[in-house]
Amino acid sequence: MTWFLSHLDDVGVFLAWHVYLSAVPLVLGLAIALPLGYLARRYRWLYPPLILGTGLLYTIPSLAIFILLPLLLGTQILDPINVLVAMTVYTIALLVRTVADGLAAVPDEVLLSATAMGYKRFSRLLRVELPLAVPVIAAGLRVAAVSNVSIVSVAAIIGVSQLGSLFTDGFARAFLAPIVVGIVACVLLALALDLLILAAGRALTPWLRNRRAS
């Protein structure tokens, strides 16, 4: 506790980096997964390869990506960009399937009546299909958020500072306090992101509340 209080500033900076490195990829990943998921849904033959391909990405060890990315991107090994890109890739890996499945969960008769009312394809997607896919997509985002918070900490090994740096630091000095603080901060951060997405999902789906109130 005393260690925590005396290192409040450092922990704050680490936390800010951690939020940045896990939340920004969440947004970027979602932005890329949406069109990919849509394609996987629209062209059925694309579904298996896309899902398999993005699924495989997730199985690449994070440390390997962190080290390989600078070679691919021509960036410095310490550049946080590497982590951002890597986390975005993981987010895409998790979300493409989620988006495709969320769109697939929209009832046929709703699609049918939207078309019959005169919606064009894109506005139907935007105004009808996506809003109805929100519950499924939000659930996927929550998984991705928690996963990102956890994977980002590995980047400490390659020297990109965030909460994970507390683990390497504590480990190097055989000192427990920073490790405990790091774990607690990571858990709280994951929880906070999770709740945030949950709340946003709720706010976007008012029709799922008070069913059959009449």
């Binding site: 009832p107 709703v110 005169g118 029709w207």
Partner: peptide, 21 residues
Amino acid sequence: PARLRRGIGYVIQHAGLFPHR
């Protein structure tokens, strides 16, 4: 087609209402 459909009312079996509206 979209313009044509906006001028034709369409009703189906399970109504197909938009659940989110």
